[in-house]
């Protein structure tokens, strides 16, 4: 199946946006997951609720809040533009940020679960061997939760490939700039005679998502063998 330039542009943009969204949220996501899994603190329930908010809010609301904060006149966006000349809203960066915010709770949930499953007694053993908390995290907790982190990343990428509401509100629908696969599908369905084009993009979406799932499954098996969890 040959793809038209518009289809290629939507597919590549979607992939770029999803990879960047994961890149943005991976480290903060693992950090939050570790805090929630391993630490007791006063406002834990509140932090947990805030992290999960994008999961329950309508995506349009998230997109609108992002626009209020990061738009050219928003309180962060305005500062960014005045000092650095950086524009976020209605660029591909906005699509990546929207995806990151929407995927964040999924990533944190998966990683938190994985960290909770790491035997805390093995971490204790590492401490008695002289490992600082950082070293324990990097050499024991992180490698042993790798399968869960991978699952979280795949989940976040999949969520990002399907992100629509927050993206269209915060990044808009600009061909070649912010028109990701779902936004492109939506656009074709709104265009007379666009149904065949929409179908082609639907097919592409299915293939890409399936490929991501299969690759993640293969990777997870390999990691599990490597860290000795599977016999």
């Amino acid at each position: 199946m040959m793809l038209s330039p518009e289809e290629w542009s939507a597919l590549l943009l979607s992939l770029r946006v999803s990879l960047w969204s994961v890149a943005i949220m991976l480290i903060p996501g693992i950090g939050c997951a570790w805090l929630l899994a391993r630490k007791k603190f006063y406002s834990k329930a509140l932090v947990d609720a805030i992290i999960h908010l994008p999961l329950v809010l309508p995506p349009v609301v998230v997109g609108y809040l992002l626009l209020l904060a990061l738009g050219r006149r928003g309180w962060i966006g305005h500062w960014l533009y005045d000092n650095w000349g950086v524009e976020i809203a209605f660029t591909w960066r906005a699509a990546a940020i929207a995806s990151a915010v929407m995927g964040f709770p999924l990533l944190v949930r998966a990683v938190r679960l994985a960290i909770e499953l790491v035997d805390i007694r093995i971490e204790q053993a590492a401490r008695t061997l002289g490992a600082s908390p950082w070293r324990v995290f990097l050499t024991v907790t992180l490698p042993l939760s790798l399968p869960g982190i991978l699952a979280g990343v795949i989940l976040a990428i999949a969520r990002s490939l399907g992100e629509f509401g927050a993206t269209i509100t915060f990044a808009g629908n600009i061909e070649g700039v912010t028109r990701t696969l779902p936004v492109a599908i939506f656009t074709y369905t709104q265009t007379p005679g666009g149904d065949p084009f929409a179908m082609r993009l639907v097919l592409i979406s299915v293939v890409v998502s399936l490929a991501a799932l299969i690759v993640s499954e293969l990777l997870a098996r390999r990691i599990q063998r490597r860290i000795g969890l599977a016999s």
Binding site: A125, L129, G130, S132, L144
Partner: peptide, 16 residues
């Protein structure tokens, strides 16, 4: 991690 004590536990607690 700064006590310089070696410990052997009831379970092996080796790094898998």
């Amino acid at each position: 991690h700064r006590r310089h004590l070696g410990m052997v536990f009831q379970e092996h607690r080796l790094f898998p």
